[in-house]
């Protein structure tokens, strides 16, 4: 990587070091190092400030479901992230399950089905979904979508209620995990689509034309040439989407009617995610409250960090193969 870069970027002629060069070059390097420092700072400050509450906590932070952290100085706080972590993973997984197949379909549509001239415009329209602020998604979800979805939930619960996920009685307000998951799915659709589309377009022309020349239909060409080649890209894109869904705050905070329980019933109110819990609890936090919320944020930071690094690794590996 480094060797190719130094060959394309020519070195300035050797000579005496000009003062301007030294200042400019060091400023540039300093900015880069500053970014590393900021990231290290994020981790360091979260750890330092969460220490206070974690050391006062009387319950096991990782296995407790209650959140009793807003205590006075003489009381003992007891809180844990078990329910929150479960809710976070459930919401993100639900969003991923809904969004990934649709995103792959859209990526295929833009890459291989849509008319050539329209393709970039259509890609731009899908990107518009990413431009809409999350708080507007939340408003749309709570102010419009949940009412529209309630009859559908009723139907789902009537016919598929024997599956625990869809068990009734359904929430009459529609402010459920299912609604939150659907809105999250819409929000992560553009990123999965963008990355899958890029990888699909990288499929060597020869592979595709060979398949078509052998008489394959378009679907057979996609199944034999495009999908095997693009699979790591789709997985990487889905994981980036997962990372975004895990950290998304507003849509969940506004839509979900929260409860700190571990419940698999998507159509009933309950569950809560880490991010939404922080946003909702922060204004009322007293005592060890803020510090405890920072500890929850640290858990979220760790989860998203692992997911994102794994996703980057998968996508980068594909890039190495295709170049």
């Amino acid at each position: 990587m480094t060797t190719t870069d130094s060959s394309t970027t020519p070195r300035a002629p050797k000579g005496k070091r000009r003062i301007g060069d030294v200042v400019f070059g060091n400023t540039a390097r300093g900015s880069g190092i500053l970014i590393l420092a900021i990231l290290a700072g994020v981790a360091a400050f979260l750890i330092i400030q969460s220490f206070d509450a974690l050391s006062a906590n009387t319950a096991n932070f990782l296995t407790t479901t209650e959140w009793d952290a807003n205590t006075d100085a003489d009381e003992e706080p007891a809180f844990g992230v078990a329910a929150l972590a479960f809710g976070t993973v459930l919401a993100a997984a639900l969003a991923l399950v809904i969004a990934t197949p649709i995103a792959v379909g859209i990526a295929l549509f833009i890459a291989y089905y849509a008319p050539r001239r329209l393709a970039s415009l259509l890609g731009y329209i899908v990107d518009l979904l990413a431009a809409i602020p999350s708080v507007v998604y939340g408003l749309w979800g709570i102010g419009y979508l949940v009412q529209e979805l309630t009859p559908f939930y009723q139907w789902l619960s009537d016919y598929l209620g024997w599956i625990p996920l869809f068990a009734g009685p359904i929430s009459t307000t529609g402010r459920t995990m299912m609604s939150a998951g659907i809105v999250l799915a819409v929000m992560i659709l553009p990123i999965i689509t963008a990355i899958s589309r890029d990888v699909f377009l990288q499929v060597p022309r020869g592979h595709r034309e060979a398949a078509l020349a052998l008489g394959a239909t378009r679907w057979e060409m996609i199944r034999m040439a495009v999908l095997p080649f693009g699979r790591p890209g789709v997985i990487g894109g889905a994981m980036l989407g997962l990372g975004r869904a895990l950290g998304e705050t507003m849509a969940v905070a506004m839509i979900l009617s929260p409860a700190l329980i571990i419940s698999p019933h998507l159509l009933q109110s309950g569950n809560q995610t880490i991010a939404a819990h922080i946003a909702l609890q922060y204004p009322e936090a007293t005592g060890h409250g803020v510090s405890a919320l920072i500890a929850a944020g640290l858990v979220l930071f760790a989860i998203t960090l692992v997911v994102n690094m794994a996703a980057r690794y998968v996508v980068a590996r594909r890039k190495e193969f295709s170049e």
């Binding site: 970014i35 400050f45 990372g243 705050t249 922080i278 920072i294």
Partner: peptide, 28 residues
């Protein structure tokens, strides 16, 4: 190595949840 590290961590930084960025400033 510095270039590699910065490239990688800028990618990681794109994935920071916005609420965590908020908490970082709160802690700071």
């Amino acid at each position: 190595r510095l270039k590699k590290a910065i490239t990688f961590f800028v990618d990681v930084m794109t994935g920071i949840p916005s609420i965590v960025a908020g908490l970082f400033v709160v802690a700071l």
